[in-house]
Design a protein around this nucleic acid. Structure first.
Lengths: 150, 150
DNA sequence: TATTGTTATACTCTATAACTATA
DNA sequence: TATAGTTATAGAGTATAACAATA
């Protein structure tokens, strides 16, 4: 347990600080592409799976069904995502990127690359790789899954 | 530049995922203490400085003046923060924790400790220290400053 | 005019909980 | 009853921009 004198030891505090800065800058970068950061994350998670039910996406992304539903609505309205009926279970359906959505991924990915380079370029290559590894380890422990092909 | 095939290389994506999970859980933990995560970060930044103008706090926290102003309003209403006139410049003022605000810090800090332990306990001690160091390095490069005593 | 801070406005993000339609 | 998903509601978080007071 830390005492008040070592408040600065809180990793969560720095994590939030850095993550917010990275996301804010990325939001600016994607703003011109009619897509938000959360929408990009959604599309990115969908990119490598042919098709997936909302419930699974919610679990993977650490979000509630309701949040996924709302995000999906927006992306469907923009023509980037589509819902397909599940013949086996009429309650269920599957989400996937449309051709337009899929076509947009490389552009958005290159903006994400730029953003990564801008922020993590402050680290050496070894440091950057170490950070990546640590974050993935934490995500995994938390049940946040990457796309299947990972 | 990454190509579409190495989408998973985006550090920003994982950073956001992990940070969101950590903050969400912490929000649950502090919810019973009439304080939000952003409010705690604000109080924490204020804890080690006797008194600071909003503009400086905004710079340190990577937020706009408007956002700081709104947060300060809420904390003043809760009796945790106070504004003091600056005799040298009537436009300016200084923010500081009230006695009640200061008294609340150890409890909130211990919840932050708990949260850190819960998430970063998945790492070895060396890994946890490495993560800390990397995050601070990134924050520093970005001009996000820790409190002066750091 | 420039600067400090507040206020007005507007979104995104997300949760919780109630609801609908199946199973 | 249980489950898949949607919808309704609400609030946090934050930005941008216009504004007021003072320098």
């Amino acid at each position: 347990m830390a005492t008040v004198s070592d408040l600065n030891a809180h990793t969560g505090y720095w994590l939030r600080m850095v993550s917010n800065a990275v996301s804010q800058e990325f939001a600016r970068k994607v703003a011109g592409n009619e897509v938000t950061v959360a929408e990009w994350a959604f599309m990115r998670a969908l990119f490598d799976v042919a098709s997936t039910p909302p419930s699974l996406l919610a679990e993977k992304m650490g979000m509630t069904k309701g949040a996924i539903s709302k995000l999906a609505d927006r992306l469907v309205a923009k023509g980037l995502v589509e819902r397909a009926d599940n013949p086996q279970d009429k309650r269920a359906h599957n989400l996937s990127l449309t051709a337009a959505g899929r076509a947009k991924v490389p552009l958005l990915a290159s903006l994400a690359d730029e953003n990564d380079a801008e922020f993590f370029g402050a680290l050496t290559r070894q440091e950057h790789e170490a950070l990546d590894r640590l974050l993935r380890k934490l995500a995994e422990k938390r049940g946040l899954k990457s796309v299947p092909v990972d």
